[in-house]
Simulated scan of single mutants.
Amino acid sequence: MTATTADLFSLRGRTAVVTGASSGLGARFATVLAAAGATVYAAARRPDRLRELADSDPGIHPVVCDVSREEDRERLVGTVLEHGGRFDVLVNNAGASGAVRAQDESSGDFSDVLAVNLVAPFHLARLLAETPSDHDGTKSVVNVSSVLGLVSGAPLGGAAYAASKAGLVGLTRELAGQWGRSGIRVNALAPGWFRSEMTDGLFADERSRRWVERGTMLGRGGQQGELDGALLYLASDASAYCTGQVLTVDGGWTAR
């Protein structure tokens, strides 16, 4: 029987983890997955923000977690399995920005950014791959990369940030290749310029805001909700035959 459109995008009965979920895109992602029927474990470092998010939706469960710490990542997955017994969807959203100018970024700073933006997504994806699943469909990993992992953002951006996001694209393709026959799909979402805590300064400054508007075919930055469909597509069975791909949602920034 052919699935309905609602069935394709439904996450009923599935368990998802969203990192970096205490604010911005991560909080939105957690809400979108919960609205689609998933039981969502929202992970981040700020308990007050997580509690506020969980209070807004009974399908969201807060887990205080610093993804730069290996023991925290293992505890996060252990909590998910202890309470739900399964782990179906992972959204690797947590991110660190680092310095804009390479001259201002030490090798230690560079390593710290990669620990959050690249090492943590690899480890969490591996933990997902190791967990059993009784779901008929596939597990789905969505790595949140960036247009800065595809093209230079100079004079904005940052060396460590760009390197980590480009590395996340390579990691996505490699894990997709290694795990595809095991029923694990791995894709990346590459947002353009969206307003968040990390980009508040960018949009508050008139010169940088106009820079975004000039370089984007739609003439503006991304608005709240404009990543919802792309995320849900990659997380759900709607993308059952899609793996190793980068879905860019940037208003045309990288198409020039």
Rank of each mutant, 00 (worst) to 15 (best):
T199L: 11
G244R: 10
W179L: 15
H61S: 08
H61N: 09
T243Q: 09
S164N: 10
G244E: 09
D200H: 07
Q245P: 01
T79L: 00
A42K: 07
R173N: 08
I60T: 11
T2P: 13
R214F: 07
T172F: 05
C242D: 13
S23L: 04
D250R: 06
L8E: 14
A160N: 11
V64D: 04
D109E: 14
T248G: 11
T216F: 09
A21F: 02
V249Y: 14
R214E: 15
R101C: 03
G180E: 05
L175T: 09
N143C: 04
A129F: 02
V67Q: 07
G221F: 10
A35F: 00
G222S: 07
H61F: 13
R49Y: 02
A154G: 06
L234G: 12
P191N: 12
K139S: 05
D228C: 04
D48G: 01
R181L: 13
S239T: 04
G85L: 06
L118H: 01
F122W: 14
E82M: 00
L90Y: 08
L227E: 09
T172S: 05
R207A: 15
R195M: 04
L11M: 03
L76H: 04
S10E: 06
V147R: 06
T2Q: 06
D66A: 11
A3E: 14
V186T: 12
S23P: 02
A6V: 12
D7A: 15
S145K: 03
F122V: 01
T2R: 09
P62N: 10
W179G: 02
A54S: 15
A38V: 12
D109C: 00
E226H: 07
W211H: 14
G180H: 08
D66Y: 04
A190H: 04
D134C: 05
F87D: 02
G85T: 06
E226D: 13
G108Q: 14
S140C: 09
G225F: 12
V113N: 13
G13A: 02
E52Y: 02
G221K: 10
V64Q: 15
